[in-house]
Computed example of a mutant assay.
Amino acid sequence: MPDDLLSHLIGPSPYSSAWLWTAVMLALGVIVWYAVVFALTSRRRLRDIPVLGAARDELIRRRAVRAVRTIGSRYRAGELAPARAGAAMSGELRSFLHAATGMDAEYMQVDAMTVGTLAPAAPILFELTDVQFNHRSAVDVGALSAATEELIREWT
């Protein structure tokens, strides 16, 4: 019997293990895709989902602290005037409060914040407003930066 006919009697060669891993990765990708779509389109807010909410809150907190620290450093280096530093810190604090509580802190008057959920932030916002609009203000912007960072870090 010739050798060339012997290849037709033996079964096919086994498939590569790369195909198995490709199928597993594609299946995991589809599962993750559906989980993300479900989480983003569910009626529950993202902060109400236990693990995702805690991770989201921590990321928001770290970003806000980093931004306020950068503003404070730029003020101490002399790059920002007190009014501009106060305005920037006020904007960051209000943005953080909006993201953390869902309330429209960016558009609220400071007097309206003294009652309710945003009450702990009202004294700092009063001082930031004073620094921003009163050129004769005696408030130390460096200390105010540290107080703002501490408020953001301890916000629950």
Rank of each mutant, 00 (worst) to 15 (best):
T70A: 15
P12C: 14
P50F: 06
Q132H: 01
I10Q: 09
A138F: 02
W19Q: 12
A105C: 03
L40H: 08
H8N: 14
L5E: 15
H135Q: 14
V115M: 03
V68I: 14
A87N: 07
I60L: 13
A119F: 01
I10R: 06
L5C: 15
G53T: 07
A119M: 03
A122D: 02
M25R: 13
A119Y: 00
I152S: 00
D140F: 07
W19N: 12
A77C: 08
A88S: 07
T70F: 13
D104F: 08
A99Q: 05
V37N: 15
G53W: 10
T101M: 02
Q132G: 00
R56E: 09
M103L: 08
A64L: 06
L125R: 04
R62N: 14
S137E: 07
L151T: 00
P14D: 14
I31D: 10
T117F: 02
A55D: 14
P14V: 12
A83M: 14
A121N: 00
D140M: 04
R61K: 13
D3S: 14
L6K: 15
E149G: 03
P12D: 15
A27C: 12
G91K: 02
V30C: 12
A27Y: 13
V110F: 03
R61C: 12
R69I: 06
R56C: 13
Q132A: 08
A77P: 12
G91R: 03
I49C: 14
L80T: 05
G29A: 12
L26I: 15
A105Q: 05
I31G: 10
L20A: 15
M108G: 00
S73Q: 15
D57F: 09
L9V: 12
R45E: 13
V139K: 02
R47N: 10
R136N: 06
R44K: 11
R136L: 04
A112T: 05
A87Y: 03
G86T: 11
E154S: 08
I10W: 08
R61M: 10
D57Y: 05
R84T: 12
M25W: 15
L46M: 11
M113K: 09
D130P: 00
R94K: 04
M89C: 13
L28H: 08
L40I: 15
H135W: 03
V30N: 09
L46R: 11
R84W: 10
P120K: 00
D140I: 06
T156F: 01
R136W: 04
